[in-house]
Design a protein around this nucleic acid. Sequence first.
DNA 1: TGATACTTGTCCGGTAAAGGTCAAATATAA
DNA 2: TTATATTTGACCTTTACCGGACAAGTATCA
Lengths: 95, 95
Amino acid sequence: MLGEKLKELRESKGLLQRQIAAELEVDTAYISKIESNEKPLSRIHLKKMAPLLGIEEEELLILWLADKLFDMAKEEVVGLKALEEAKKELGKILK
Amino acid sequence: MLGEKLKELRESKGLLQRQIAAELEVDTAYISKIESNEKPLSRIHLKKMAPLLGIEEEELLILWLADKLFDMAKEEVVGLKALEEAKKELGKILK
DNA sequence: TGATACTTGTCCGGTAAAGGTCAAATATAA
DNA sequence: TTATATTTGACCTTTACCGGACAAGTATCA
């Protein structure tokens, strides 16, 4: 999931939650919850966070969206099929 | 999208919105909006609707979920990549 | 011109989720 | 032990969405 990834990235950069929190101007508790998937990461925070964590915004965006899609799909037995169907559909309109 | 599909199915069965509405115990306006994707189809309504439309609930469920996934993914440029990533991830935990 | 089907706009109450904060509890390291 | 980092739980406010209803408008056809 996304939270773990964010934590990994942060730690690999030797950063403290406090420092991230400061940049985003929020409480460290909030960051902690994002890293434990208790609170979602908003797109705005994502944007601010990417450079701090040394990851391309687009790459993080893929992870972020994939995480949300995964979350939805896993709730249903037909999740995998639905993902395939959605992919097919999106492929169509993109061409 | 899902709404159009529901409408097709209904018409192919020669049913009126009024009849569907009666079964679901709602207003026809509400059905109309579902068919025009103005209101989402709830899982409960989906369940009731499937037999009326002569479609397997599971099949409708796939369409329904795929539609929601598609909707999310299409908002981002990286939507397709995210769908792939999500699929990969879900495949993993399913094995 | 009716009648019937459908659509569209507006409104509404309830619920849930987002986006936090704060205090207190825990871990960890010096 | 003390300081610093993180987690957890309770709470709060605001916003968004859901599931509808209702009235009025439009389309179609006999």
